[in-house]
Design a protein around this nucleic acid. Sequence first.
DNA 1: CTGTTAGCGCTTTCAC
DNA 2: GTGAAAGCGCTAACAG
Lengths: 338, 338
Amino acid sequence: MMKREKNFPRMAEVAKLAGVTVMTVSRALRSPAKVAPDTLARIHAAIERTGYVPNALAGALSAGGGGKTITALIPTVQHAIFADTITGLSAALRPEGYHLVLGETGYRSEEEDALVAAFLARRPEGFLLTGVTRSLRTRDLLKRANVPVVETWELTNTPIDMVVGYSNEKAAHDMTAWLAGRGYQRIAFVSGPSRNNERARRREIGYRRALKELGLPALKIFTIGAPAAPQVEDGAAILPEVLAEKPDAIFFTSDIYAVGAIQEAKRRGIAVPKELGIAGFHDLAIATVVEPALTTVHVPGREIGYIAGRNILARIKGEPAPQLSAIPFAIVARDSTK
Amino acid sequence: MMKREKNFPRMAEVAKLAGVTVMTVSRALRSPAKVAPDTLARIHAAIERTGYVPNALAGALSAGGGGKTITALIPTVQHAIFADTITGLSAALRPEGYHLVLGETGYRSEEEDALVAAFLARRPEGFLLTGVTRSLRTRDLLKRANVPVVETWELTNTPIDMVVGYSNEKAAHDMTAWLAGRGYQRIAFVSGPSRNNERARRREIGYRRALKELGLPALKIFTIGAPAAPQVEDGAAILPEVLAEKPDAIFFTSDIYAVGAIQEAKRRGIAVPKELGIAGFHDLAIATVVEPALTTVHVPGREIGYIAGRNILARIKGEPAPQLSAIPFAIVARDSTK
DNA sequence: CTGTTAGCGCTTTCAC
DNA sequence: GTGAAAGCGCTAACAG
């Protein structure tokens, strides 16, 4: 056994100080009702004096269960929308005393694979994963572990365990159709990096389907490089390229890009929404701050997290939980479109 | 022992399948060089077949050490600025294979106390805490545990262990003085909830000190209610009240509020920055999107997280790490001030 | 109400 | 290069 400088008193020390055995201390902590009041008092005093903090690792090992933790893997904490999901999840878990362990995958699926394995090693009681596409190995690991898993932010008929999300394809389709309904004819589409982002891919599919249904021209599709997290400047930078396609509207897969594009359009003296309509995705706070305010798809980030949390908790308690929960998105019309 | 539905294969099953003892499997995982190549191959095959994922709880218990995790406690993931700190911390930890466990305190110190105890129970290798004021009990617990602790986002001469931050007092002082230098005379100050937010309190002190030094009038100080996380609308809502003090500039302790105030001022036909200068704090993305763009204090959130991570890692390895790291802030002049 | 006996799944000696 | 014994800190089950 390796020597560590760390210095945690163990239960045995508390027990000795209180003049009882460890078993009584253990009970005092987990079912105080079964311990005599004065013994309890002595034990509490001893805990206070020693600064004892139970070793949850040992406890979990012994009790054969996890330490009341749920693991969530999101692409990045930078994106406010995933932050919302975390907040929703937190809100669901807190009342039940569960803790949240967070991992950032940086939108990289290899990183996700590595994190799932690493976190599985800690035997969490449940998992929240972003998206529904992942390596077979990871799916397999999670299935075998037989731990509640919620995949989020998209829908699928073949979840590992449960899904809570919305259809990105339908959302993009609906926004495209909505833009067409406002009279836009040449609708361009600008996506974030789609290599490891199925949500971006699905949105593109929805956009294409809408164009086809409506008989609108298919413009060149643009993809923004691959920074870890989207930046406002990226949207500004790509605008000139997109304008070469002579669009009368541009649909961005993130508000962040759309805001950058609005700013750049203004700098270039292009009238938004008259000459050029601009739409985003996510409905971030920034969407109402930019001028003109951004038309966008409101996406239920917080609700996804909350429902996912409730579902995981239900599964843990052996209660039934839906395999698929579809949460509605909504198109929010503002001033960046006619 | 409680029966769980979970279904993790143990090392013993892998060992049996590979025709060796658990000890050899353990070695294959931790020091493969000490195991014969063909044995190693059989073991890996067995791991693959069983879907074995080591139980880090047991491993840590046995090895007497933690499972390579660092715990970070921040007020909220909603605030982009703390998200930056998390990103910086992540970046520092990842190369060394450390994992990040995140807790949200919701700006409540009782919650922080509870979380410190709960996380300490999991025996992390280090802690990142936001702010430098906390209960004696928590300080004591952390000191006794003798685990690397970095307090952040403020400076102090009496850290539990280490501090990485900047002086909120000086930052607010400097911004106030800067505003005065631009010709503003009646500078109002609007703070977020300060009850459990020492950073807000220190900023207020800095503001007051600057006024006194400059001989400027002390206006009434405004405090925005207590939502979990700041909202743009809060800044808009408080503007009328503040205007009653006839300020020629308003300094908000968060960009979020400042942006709301700019929007509200525009709605009311007040010219920013001519009639009213507005300044914020944090330098969020939103600061460059609002019109006029917001003058603010740029705060080194990401650097704080990164340096904190490096310091914790250094301490773990027994290398020296500075007790205090002061990271510079900067005043960013934009168009919301003359 | 409290103590005793096992044992969670793994790693650390120390043998062979 | 591999194994056997012991134990990490705690809790379940059964006594008493």
